[in-house]
Design a protein around this nucleic acid. Structure first.
Length: 134
DNA sequence: GCCAACGTTGGC
DNA sequence: GCCAACGTTGGC
C-alpha cells in the first residue's frame, strides 16, 4: 500500500463535500508531476487530506477508490484523476506549522516543494502525522 | 497584500 | 534551445 497527500482548498472541495458525495473525484490536476503521482495510485492506497489556504492543515485521511482514469473535466487524455472515499477525520487537525516543526517530517514534499498538489508520503512520516492528529 | 517558487508562453 | 515576461500557487 502506498501513501499520499492531496491538497485542496476547503472552499473548492472540502472533507464535508467528500462525506456528502461518498465517492469523490480528484480531478482538475494540470501539473505533470502531480499527474505522475496520480498515475501511480492503486485502489486501497491511503492519503492525507490537506487544506491549503488561510488555515493550512491536514484534516483527514482518505482512501484511493479507483484506478487512475482520464479526467472527464478536460478533453485531453494526458490528464488523469482518481476516485477517493473518506476514511476518518483527525480528532485534532495537524497545522502545517506543527508538521514543519517536527524533524521527522523534514523531507516531506509539502515543505520542500510547496506548490505540488499531489505527492507521495513516506510511510514513517505518514504514521507520524497521523499520530500528531490523535 | 506581499513575496518566493516555479510552470508556461512566446520571441528570437 | 534559451531566456524574459507573465501567471498561478500558496505561505505568511
Amino acid at each position: 500500500m502506498a501513501y499520499w497527500l492531496l491538497k485542496s482548498e476547503p472552499e473548492t472541495y472540502s472533507y464535508e463535500d467528500l462525506l456528502r458525495d461518498k465517492t469523490g473525484r480528484w480531478d482538475g490536476v494540470r501539473n505533470y508531476e502531480a499527474r505522475n503521482n496520480i498515475r501511480d495510485m492503486k485502489v486501497g492506497d491511503r492519503a492525507l487530506f490537506y487544506y491549503s489556504g488561510k488555515n493550512p492543515q491536514v484534516i483527514a485521511q482518505v482512501k484511493i477508490a479507483s484506478e487512475p482514469y482520464p479526467d472527464p473535466t478536460i478533453d485531453d487524455p494526458r490528464w488523469l484523476c482518481v476516485d477517493v472515499q473518506a476514511l476518518s477525520l483527525f480528532p485534532k487537525p495537524i497545522p502545517l506549522a506543527d508538521i514543519k516543526a517536527n524533524p521527522a517530517c523534514a523531507d516531506l514534499l509539502l515543505i520542500r516543494h510547496t506548490r505540488l498538489s499531489v505527492m507521495p508520503v513516506d510511510p514513517v512520516v505518514y504514521t507520524a502525522i497521523c499520530e500528531m492528529g490523535q
